[in-house]
């Protein structure tokens, strides 16, 4: 895993940027009728839908070895950058809180193969101030890791991990049906053991930092 090098995904990144650029235009194009009469919170649907993209950074490492005599040490792997996709679907509890399921998908190409990570989390998003767009987000679930890197072996290996996500951001036009949010999030994937061609690596933890933007539909 340590031999893996970064390879940005220009298509995904440009797609993300395009999305970020297009969303305000789309939102703006529909802003007039809402500006005239924004729906009251009680009239809004209970749907909470978020779709967007982010620039993400991944680093995995192992720590806290259970067996101090283990011959295998993994140390710290390099930071790997890539684009990622994010989607939420859920329920608007009230005007300051949404709950639902979140999908975070990040593919990474390396010199020795590629890695795909998918986090599926139950999340809650909370806006402390109803009149402001600032929000906090947290949740937990499962991460699905698919490795095709040489260090793992000749074929892909699929693993599941405990996933935890925390984040914060700002949602523009939170009371409208269509809005935009920018966010920063950190996902952690506690993988456990990774079986490699050189033997198992114990207590592997993946950290994923992401900064991006998304469309919000309510």
């Amino acid at each position: 895993m340590e031999r893996v090098v970064n390879r940005p995904r220009p298509a995904l990144l440009s797609g993300t940027l395009l999305l970020v650029w297009l969303v305000p235009a789309a939102a703006g194009a529909q802003s007039e009728p809402h500006a005239a009469a924004p729906p009251a919170p009680s009239e809004m649907s209970k749907l909470w839908l978020v779709v967007g993209g982010a620039s993400a950074t991944l680093r995995s490492e192992c720590n806290a070895p259970a067996n101090p005599d283990s011959p295998h040490t993994c140390g710290q792997s390099p930071y790997r950058h890539s684009g990622s996709l994010i989607a939420d679907i859920g329920y608007r509890v009230h005007d300051r809180m949404d709950v639902g399921a979140e999908l975070f998908w990040m593919p990474t190409n390396t010199s020795s193969g590629h890695i795909r990570v998918t986090h599926v989390d139950a999340v809650a998003q909370f806006r402390p101030w109803a009149s402001q767009g600032f929000f906090l987000k947290g949740g937990a679930g499962l991460a699905f890791l698919r490795n095709w890197v040489d260090a793992v072996g000749p074929s892909s290996i699929d693993q599941k991990a405990l996933s935890v996500v925390v984040g914060a951001g700002w949602v523009f036009r939170p009371a409208d049906r269509l809005g935009l949010e920018i966010f920063g999030m950190q996902h952690a994937g506690a993988i456990g053991d990774v079986q490699t061609s050189e033997g198992p690596i114990e207590n592997v933890m993946g950290n994923f930092w992401s900064v991006g933007a998304a469309v919000v539909i309510r």
Partner: peptide
């Protein structure tokens, strides 16, 4: 920069 770890 480090991110989350398991503690001891």
């Amino acid at each position: 920069k480090q991110g989350w770890v398991w503690d001891l």
